[in-house]
Amino acid sequence: MIENRPILNIVSHVVLIFGVLIVALPIWITFVAATHDPVRMTQAPIPMLPGGYFWENFKQTLFGGGLSGTETAPVWRMLLNSLFMALMISFGKIAISLLSAFAIVYFKFPFRMGFFWLIFITLMLPVEVRILPTFEVVADLGMLNSYWGLSIPLIASATATFMFRQVFLTIPDEMLESARIDGAGPMRFFWDILIPLSRTNIAALFVILFIYGWNQYLWPLLITTETDMTTIVMSIKQMLEAAEQSPQWNIIMMTALLAMIPPVFVVVAMQRLFVQGLTETDK
């Protein structure tokens, strides 16, 4: 039985609305700043209502030269670089983690669990810890200023391997026996049974990994020396530094607004599968 407590409901909604306002206020200020001219954004107080320069700032930022005084690639190119990097990291991590979890769970070979724990221990070695040897390897392989150099060192994922291993362990052994009786080989069992049953978990992991790849800053900063390979997160930082000499906050905020669109689109488009993938505990 659910008790009706009007006062508690009112307090809960007030707290929820207050939290939403706190989270949404910086986004609103970013949007408002992207709709004004540069002169208005240098005057106090900061405007809280949209202006009439949205499309002008949009075209100047996305298809123009971006912020004057900075040596960066066009914003559309930086968005494309970040998109390629995020997609390569997401698909690469999911593919490698699925195959490694499949091998650990369904194949019996010497030191099987030892290899799993070696993979799991790498959680204690993030990119920041091993960044110098990783950079040297990438440089020796000639992958500087390339999408491969941006993505391959970030593809291996112990977290995703552990997650898919736990998912595969919940699948009844009867399914494996049935597949064997029907004459299905290991890869047929993998594609026709394991992948469909892991669909929601793959979607949830894809959302997390896409945002992880999109928000990368330190690794692209080290691996890229050409402006054509600059990512959008790097460019925002460079624009903020250049704003001290050329305070074009309308361009900076429009760039930040454009940088938010792909992650938001991925989360909204895959929201249902994302929630199911995080909440499902059995098959």
Results as ranks from 00 to 15, higher is better:
residue 65 G to M: 07
residue 241 E to F: 14
residue 194 L to A: 02
residue 28 W to N: 00
residue 31 F to N: 08
residue 226 E to I: 01
residue 82 S to P: 13
residue 250 N to A: 11
residue 184 A to S: 12
residue 221 L to N: 13
residue 120 F to H: 09
residue 25 L to M: 12
residue 82 S to R: 09
residue 119 I to W: 08
residue 251 I to W: 02
residue 93 K to M: 13
residue 199 R to K: 15
residue 266 V to Y: 10
residue 125 L to N: 05
residue 181 I to P: 06
residue 241 E to G: 05
residue 180 R to S: 12
residue 15 V to M: 10
residue 278 L to R: 03
residue 234 M to V: 09
residue 227 T to F: 01
residue 210 F to D: 10
residue 77 R to A: 09
residue 102 F to L: 08
residue 279 T to N: 01
residue 149 G to D: 01
residue 20 V to N: 00
residue 250 N to Y: 05
residue 33 A to D: 08
residue 19 G to H: 09
residue 18 F to N: 00
residue 223 I to A: 12
residue 5 R to T: 11
residue 101 A to N: 10
residue 83 L to D: 08
residue 124 M to P: 05
residue 100 S to R: 12
residue 281 T to A: 09
residue 270 M to A: 15
residue 111 F to V: 15
residue 111 F to G: 15
residue 179 A to T: 03
residue 81 N to G: 12
residue 16 L to V: 04
residue 213 G to T: 08
residue 248 Q to M: 07
residue 124 M to E: 13
residue 48 M to R: 01
residue 91 F to T: 08
residue 76 W to V: 02
residue 133 P to Q: 09
residue 125 L to A: 15
residue 213 G to H: 03
residue 67 L to Q: 11
residue 261 I to C: 09
residue 72 T to G: 04
residue 222 L to F: 07
residue 112 R to V: 12
residue 32 V to A: 04
residue 240 L to W: 02
residue 93 K to T: 15
residue 211 I to S: 10
residue 97 S to N: 05
residue 243 A to N: 01
residue 73 A to I: 08
residue 141 L to G: 09
residue 167 V to D: 00
residue 40 R to W: 00
residue 143 M to D: 00
residue 54 F to Q: 07
residue 15 V to H: 01
residue 262 P to R: 02
residue 260 M to Q: 07
residue 212 Y to N: 12
residue 94 I to P: 13
residue 34 A to G: 04
residue 205 L to K: 04
residue 130 R to V: 10
residue 262 P to Q: 02
residue 283 K to S: 07
residue 74 P to G: 06
residue 261 I to S: 06
residue 245 Q to C: 00
residue 194 L to N: 03
residue 243 A to Y: 02
residue 274 F to W: 14
residue 14 V to Y: 11
residue 153 P to R: 04
residue 17 I to D: 00
residue 121 I to M: 15
residue 151 S to M: 03
residue 63 F to I: 13
residue 199 R to I: 12
residue 167 V to C: 03
residue 65 G to I: 03
residue 193 I to Y: 10
residue 34 A to M: 05
residue 249 W to V: 02
residue 161 T to Q: 06
residue 24 A to W: 09
residue 214 W to P: 11
residue 204 A to T: 13
residue 9 N to T: 09
residue 162 F to N: 00
residue 61 T to E: 10
residue 132 L to E: 11
residue 38 P to N: 07
residue 98 L to F: 14
residue 52 G to N: 11
residue 76 W to D: 02
residue 202 I to S: 06
residue 260 M to G: 14
residue 264 V to F: 14
residue 65 G to E: 12
residue 190 F to D: 04
residue 25 L to W: 11
residue 38 P to Q: 07
residue 139 A to S: 15
residue 198 S to A: 14
residue 2 I to R: 05
residue 244 E to Y: 13
residue 176 L to D: 06
residue 181 I to M: 09
residue 63 F to K: 06
residue 18 F to D: 00
residue 171 I to L: 08
residue 170 T to L: 03
residue 202 I to D: 01
residue 200 T to H: 08
residue 183 G to E: 04
residue 123 L to K: 15
residue 126 P to M: 13
residue 185 G to W: 05
residue 128 E to R: 10
residue 282 D to G: 11
residue 179 A to W: 08
residue 76 W to P: 03
residue 226 E to K: 15
residue 272 R to N: 13
residue 213 G to V: 06
residue 1 M to G: 14
residue 93 K to G: 13
residue 77 R to V: 15
residue 208 I to P: 01
residue 278 L to I: 08
residue 174 E to P: 01
residue 36 H to L: 02
residue 259 A to Q: 06
